[in-house]
Nucleic acid binder design. Structure first.
Lengths: 365, 365
DNA sequence: CTGAAAGCGCTTACAG
DNA sequence: CTGAAAGCGCTTACAG
């Protein structure tokens, strides 16, 4: 590729100084109409494009924001990223997307494919992004490593950082807490109101905040309702369809008695329904299913999936607002909560009968 | 945020020149053991991080690649992006992701949320990325605008550009053509082998190459088989679940007779199956469904979706290889084709009866 | 209105 | 082994 045309070349071509070219390009300062026209023509003719690197070196801003997320192929994150990007673009910022695959066991098999979050933090520092958004990842691991905590603290001391996840004391970020489990309580109450008494819980990686929060809310709700809350009703795994499938298989193999189940999100619900079906069970006739976090295709499933809308769109807007606020120094250490909402569709109905207790046959795949 | 520590500060602190600090940090040139240690300690103590902007200005490379895609929330793109990112990271590059929402009618409602591809091209030039990957978008519009073509040509003259999409003569990019419709022909033949004679086609935005290619292959296959290919068997729309749903409604409202249908991808198949169900039709008992482009959840749907695996994973690897090749000047104007593969699952079976011809009732939603 | 100069933070020949 | 200097491409006071 040929070297790109610089401000100096334009200046020489027009017999003016580079300062003058800069002035006309940026429409700053004063330039006589004649030279302005001459310079503008040269710029157009040569296709001059200013070097953003040089500009950033001076202005000390790159108009770039870093986004560090676990897995963009997860619909939850891709939907959120889309929202965030739109808001960022409107504010004139670019986004550098970094996938860590941290909680995504689907991708962790074999050699390390991505960089760690700590490595990404270092890169953000070097590249002088104007701010960083951390979405989940190690921040949501219940037992956080000291080195991660130190790295995040170091990053936050040097540039604005907004975190969607569990607030950590003494780390100078803006934390945005997604939810407190309210939606799950609503879901359990809804199931109970339909007459269900034995309600299972499927999916979610153990040791992750979102799992712990939702599981905790599930247990609290059951306790408040004086409903059974046996350990065997719970099967954690991860956040994808294959994990819901696996959780369903385990639940069924245990021979647990349940007439309804909470799935940690839509993907897990999908896999769970599949496992049930392979066992000869129908939703909602035999088992009612409700998702704790609805994505975008729930209304097209058969049956249409009842679930909690965590209002992630709202979250997306708030997040970028918080980040831009932090970048421009008008940040408040917000603790945002979106009100979850139950969306009733077709996957729940009053219980007809208990699930048979005998050991389950292995499904064919 | 306080100004970050520079090489000059480290130099002063150690009473050496900045050249020396640079040498120890980059482990280049020769430095005495004593000063090396002193400098390394200062670097660690102060948490010095080199300014990548300044480095890039000198080295003329940013180790950043731009990716311009229509919609990362579309599972096709997010899966591809994931693959591409992993390959890029391993090669030491960062990715700037730009969503244009170009073909995504789901997002085009109301005011313009994203930038146009041409604006993104300009930004790539300014930011001096080392290369650009263009995935779909206007490149796949059958009637391409002149200004887009000019902008792409200009970009490709100035930096390495790899395009996944329809090759355009005289535009100096590396083009990677995804497919030629071979998979669709396989799908139609499969349906015909099952005994289907009236096969519908649903989804895909009109005027887009991928739609045209697949529709063309569908028609060719039908013609070769001497099967009916009425206009009314075809209903285009777009690439998402809601579009499949809409296409299904239209097909049903037309009262067309069909026992099987091709959906342009899994999302469309999902919506289509939903529309059929709302009309009281079951898959595969009443209608067989096959997807022309399978995503990741097809094996968890009820019924498990039969479809074509376009082997996008392979594509992801090839793409980044081509881009890195172009960046390092070892590009060949590749024309890559992945061999599609039929994956038979549960959504197709021999026809039982024709769909009733009377006008369809509107489904409840 | 316009230009010369300093400087953003760094790397890299070139001397010593 | 080490430092002074030039230079990457640009912006911005400061003179004139």
């Amino acid at each position: 590729m040929g070297k790109s045309v610089t401000i100096r070349e334009i200046a020489e071509e027009c017999h003016v100084s580079i300062a003058t070219v800069s002035r006309v390009f940026n429409d700053s300062g004063t330039v006589s109409a004649a030279t302005r026209q001459r310079v503008e023509e040269a710029i157009a003719r040569r296709g001059y494009t200013p070097n953003a690197l040089a500009r950033s070196l001076i202005s000390d801003q790159t108009m770039t924001l870093g986004v560090i997320a676990p897995d963009i192929a997860n619909p939850y994150f891709s939907a959120l990223f889309t929202l965030i990007e739109q808001a960022a673009i409107q504010a004139g910022y670019f986004l550098v997307l970094c996938n860590t695959f941290y909680i995504s066991s689907s991708y962790q098999q074999g050699q390390r494919m991505a960089r760690t979050e700590e490595e990404y933090f270092e890169m953000m520092l070097r590249r002088k992004v104007d701010g960083v958004l951390v979405i989940g990842g190690q921040i949501d691991v219940v037992e956080m490593s000291q080195s991660y905590r130190a790295a995040l603290t170091n990053l936050a001391r040097r540039m604005p950082v907004v975190v969607i996840g569990r607030p950590i004391p003494d780390v100078p970020c803006v934390f945005i807490e997604k939810e407190s489990g309210g939606g799950v309580i609503t879901a359990v109450n809804y199931l109970a109101s339909l007459g269900h008494r034995r309600i299972a819980f499927a999916g979610g990686e153990p040791g992750i905040t979102i799992t712990a929060t939702r599981l905790g809310a599930y247990r609290d709700a059951l306790a408040a309702l004086r409903l059974p809350c046996d350990e065997e009703l719970v099967c954690l795994s991860d956040y994808y369809a294959k994990d819901g499938y696996q959780a369903g298989q385990v639940l069924l193999a245990r021979g647990v008695d349940f007439t309804a189940a909470l799935a940690i999100n839509d993907s897990v619900a999908l896999g769970l329904m599949r496992a049930l079906k392979d066992h000869g069970l129908s939703v909602p006739q035999d088992v009612s299913i409700i998702s704790c976090d609805q994505f975008y295709n729930s209304e097209y499933l058969i049956p249409r999936l009842t679930g909690i809308d965590q209002h992630n769109e709202l979250l997306g807007k708030l997040v970028i607002q918080a980040l831009l606020g932090a970048v421009h120094g008008t940040s408040e250490p917000a603790l945002i909560k979106c009100m979850p909402e139950l969306v009733v569709r077709e996957s729940c109905q009053p219980p007809r009968q208990a699930v048979p207790r005998e050991g389950a046959a292995m499904p064919n795949q």
